[in-house]
């Protein structure tokens, strides 16, 4: 008796086989895209660049999943799960690309489960503690605005895989920003208490924003080759977006982004990352020979 026969006894229809929710495809995520490295591009650089963008998404998703069963409304649990799923989908594609580009053939799970904190390349804001709902909203607003600006440009990358990933991600990120924006308005312009929480969240998040626009040498080289985007180039645009959202939400116009040096992109992290990775990796590490 085949497995499918067993299932067909249970319900009338199953719909499409390959995907039943975004980001959960049962097939190779990069199937059908030309994975040849563009001419003159250093595979090691491209792999590191993909890890930077992939790790931002993976680590942010890992923070977001804790809102599921813990949010103020069921609708928010659905929305935040959806955003985490989008980011997880982006991370999987980017990490898979990293393994192709550096020639090691490592897969998405090798990167996610078998690297230590010093090998992660995400910015500190992605790993920062979850905090309250206002903190989650402001963090998402900043990260999605910056990522949307970068990915909009990345859709024209000379690397066809990065271009395809970015083209798909842009719509997702626009939704993430829209969601964060709508809650920034409600909290900022809601009750005196929610206003206070929103002010505190901006104050907590702002010191971490400068790093988002500090250029790592790999980002500079990738941008120079038309493969990546220099984050410094989107600094003003992102600031303008955030200033508009925050003032509409009756919050103070934000200070300029602080000047910051490269940190997470170079593998230097806050103490928050190690416990986050311990939780992410613990089952996989307990069963190194297992198949899932």
């Amino acid at each position: 008796m085949s497995g499918d026969h067993i299932y067909s006894a249970l319900s009338e229809e199953h719909g499409g086989d390959a995907r039943w929710a975004f980001g959960t495809g049962f097939t190779d995520a990069l199937a059908g895209v030309d994975t040849t490295l563009p001419e003159g591009v250093d595979g090691q650089d491209l792999a590191l660049y993909c890890q930077m963008l992939g790790d931002d998404a993976l680590v942010q998703a890992q923070r977001l999943v804790h809102w599921v069963t813990d949010a103020p409304e069921l609708e928010e649990e659905v929305a935040l799960a959806n955003i985490a799923l989008d980011l997880l989908g982006q991370a999987r594609l980017l990490l898979a690309r990293a393994g192709q580009a550096d020639g090691t053939g490592r897969d998405e799970d090798d990167f996610a489960y078998r690297r230590g904190p010093a090998e992660f390349r995400n910015v500190h804001l992605a790993e920062a503690p979850r905090g309250d709902f206002a903190r989650a909203v402001v963090t998402l607003l900043v990260l999605s605005s910056a990522r949307l600006a970068v990915f909009t440009r990345l859709a024209d990358s000379r690397d066809p895989v990065l271009a395809a990933i970015a083209a798909k991600a842009v719509n997702e990120l626009a939704y993430h920003r829209e969601y964060a924006l709508s809650w920034t308005l409600r909290l900022g312009d809601g009750t005196p208490y929610s206003h206070e929480r929103a002010v505190a969240a901006v104050a907590d998040v702002w010191p971490l924003t400068g790093e988002l626009f500090a250029t790592h040498p790999v980002e500079a080289r990738m941008a120079g080759q038309g493969v990546g985007v220099d984050p410094a180039s989107v600094r003003e645009e992102v600031h303008a977006v955030l200033a508009q959202v925050l003032t509409t939400a009756t919050l103070d116009a934000p200070a300029p982004f602080p000047e910051a040096a490269v940190a997470g992109r170079g593998g230097r992290h806050t103490p928050e990352l190690a416990p986050l990775l311990d939780e992410l990796q613990k089952v996989a590490r307990e069963h190194p020979e297992a198949t899932w």
């Binding site: 929710a21 959960t24 999943v65 599921v68 997880l88 489960y113 069963h287 297992a290 899932w292």
Partner: peptide, 19 residues
């Protein structure tokens, strides 16, 4: 188990399911 799912594919599937 979402936070500790042992592969990214399992994590995505489980997250989608709980959602």
């Amino acid at each position: 188990w979402i936070a500790s799912a042992p592969s990214l594919r399992r994590k995505a599937i489980l997250l989608a399911k709980v959602q």
